[in-house]
Design a protein around this nucleic acid. Structure first.
Length: 189
DNA sequence: CCGGACAACATAG
DNA sequence: CTATGTTGTCCGG
């Protein structure tokens, strides 16, 4: 089994909740082989993981993403979360569950949950995922949901590739997708 | 094998 | 309503 979304997480109460209530979000920044990594979390779990934030943009982009939240850097309290994410990037602790606090539409959560079911080191096509959620024709919508994934690496959207075996996109960061898969031991054609 | 056309669909604006 | 996107399938060349 892979990761599991927490039942009490925003994954249920989302959207409106997070936007109508002022929540506290802490974030930490670290360095990986793939560049700067930003991990942000509420008291319920990780709500954002980004691989390409620049120092200057970090807090601003978090504010933009969580307009109503109280945001502050806190490397101490997020030490473990950051370490866990960094480990994953280097191919370690791939199966360790992490508490998540995500907000998204019903469709997006279905897709994300499906992604969490993909074993480390394995891949699925956008079509596979679409069929798994009972919408065989929504492959492109699945791709969009992947792109909307708030927590890179943790929800393994990088494990979704094209039906023909080729890499597929990754929000303009094909190198990152390739590297993540490589770290998991996935050999690309 | 490569390119073009089009189908199909959740979301953003 | 229109445009867009981490696709898929089919048809020519």
């Amino acid at each position: 089994m892979g990761l599991r979304l927490p039942e009490l997480g925003p994954i249920q109460a989302y959207g409106t909740e997070l936007n109508s209530v002022t929540v506290n979000i802490k974030y930490s920044v670290g360095d990986s082989a793939l560049g700067k990594v930003v991990v942000a979390a509420t008291d319920k779990g990780i709500c954002a993981v980004s691989l390409r934030e620049s120092d200057a943009d970090t807090e601003q982009s978090l504010r933009h993403r969580f307009p109503r939240a109280e945001i502050a850097r806190d490397d101490d309290s997020l030490h473990n979360e950051l370490a866990a994410v960094l480990d994953r990037i280097s191919g370690r602790r791939l199966d360790e569950p992490l508490p998540l606090d995500l907000q998204g539409t019903e469709f997006q959560r279905e897709v994300w949950n499906q992604l969490l079911a993909i074993p480390p080191g394995k891949t699925r096509s956008y079509l596979d995922v679409a069929q798994a959620i009972n919408r065989p024709k929504a492959t492109r919508a699945v791709a969009q949901a992947c792109g909307a994934n708030p927590v890179a690496v943790v929800v393994p959207c990088h494990r979704v590739v094209m039906s023909d075996g080729s890499l597929g996109g990754y929000s303009g960061l094909p190198g990152v997708k390739k590297a993540l898969l490589n770290a998991e031991g996935v050999r690309l054609a």
